[in-house]
Nucleic acid binder design. Structure first.
Lengths: 204, 204
DNA sequence: TATTATACTGTACATATATTCAGTATTTTT
DNA sequence: AAAAATACTGAATATATGTACAGTATAATA
């Protein structure tokens, strides 16, 4: 980041104050009005200088297309996708699978996570996981017995307790007596671990 | 704040995401592009509806003159206290009752909320509320039958389903067959509704 | 000394953008 | 049953806005 001149600093301050007050960036004319310039080109040249020095970026041809580069990332929030637990197909992050996104601090769930998975059915109800709950999923294949995992068998995606019985046998256990354990022989069947649950979010 | 429709929510989300990504609000055309509308008037009417309902404000004659009202602003979170569900005494926000705080976007749970309550016991397990879960509590006495309420009887604080049987009789119903309904005669006993659950947060 | 950066005024114009009007259709409320 | 709200398409237009061009002047740099 290069040195900034006092006038450029005034323009940068002006942009930030305007943003805070109105919620959107100023036009060239707005900056002129605020700082007493009489030509929009005064603002323009300052903006170009600020862009060149890396303080802002300007979207060409776009009204109010100024964005201040954030060196002070205060909230560290992020948009996390919500993915529907489709019966067939893996819960990829492809756009067609994303129902919506949720803004949530990065460190909201202890180990960090990658996306929310919307739960279908009640197979884990005794673990307190109900229909339409959002499970915070961390993408990993490093799971231990007792972990709640997101597993894929062929094209079926399911949320269950993970339990490795032996080197070749894995059991996926529901938390609902109406459902049966799923026993998988890794020699004859393919089991894909998408990730594990690191938290849960429910909105009434 | 009036009710928002699902399409209006999509538009509101779109604005927030666009803002986060670019640093400035979208135009009508931008919204159309994002959401697949074919006429800028589709975005316009949604924006007017959102303005009328108080979710955004629009500066007339101003390009990208959309600002999201603070109470809906997903960015810039707040610290919310976590209160232990002590067996005796009401869950006040007094400092000695606050275990810790959690940074969380203001409108993380739809209706807004005031604090997190840490759950003790399993009396609501069939409603998917487990030990150590954090219930997002909105302070209100305006509760309907079927709501999950935080109620105080003498010095005992409890989380239960609310069910008004008649003008004088209220039942507090657990979601666990090992527990009994609590029947309260409002003429002889004091029932204090601290608030209701608007969401739940679990961290593994 | 020539060149580049800074710091402006002023005019002009293409286009980005808000916004109105005219329709159609469905759902919700009164 | 009527009215209002929701949810769009499509076309048209006034204006808000970015941006280029033509100048002037001073300070910093090579």
């Amino acid at each position: 980041m290069k040195e900034i001149t006092s006038q450029q600093q005034r323009v940068l301050d002006c942009i930030q104050i305007y943003l805070k007050k109105t919620g959107f960036p100023p036009t060239r004319a707005d900056i002129c009005k605020e700082l007493g310039f009489k030509s929009p080109n005064s603002a323009e040249t300052h903006l170009r200088a600020l862009e060149k020095k890396g303080f802002i970026s300007i979207e060409s041809g776009t009204s109010r297309g100024i964005s201040v580069k954030d060196q002070n990332n205060l909230f560290g929030g992020d948009e996390y996708p919500v993915i529907g637990l489709v019966a067939a197909g893996s819960p990829t992050l492809a756009e067609e699978n994303i129902e919506r996104t949720i803004n949530c601090p990065k460190s909201f769930f202890e180990s960090g996570f990658d996306y929310f998975l919307k739960v279908r059915g009640l197979s884990m109800k005794d673990a307190g996981i109900m229909e339409d709950d959002l499970i915070a999923v961390k993408k990993t294949t490093d799971v231990k017995n007792g972990d709640i995992v997101i597993a894929r068998l062929d094209d079926e995606v399911t949320v269950k307790f993970f339990n490795r019985k032996s080197s070749n046998i894995v059991e996926l256990e529901p938390a609902n007596e109406d459902f049966e354990n799923i026993v998988i022989n890794l020699e004859s069947e393919q089991l894909h671990i998408e990730g594990k649950s690191v938290g849960l979010l429910r909105r009434n």
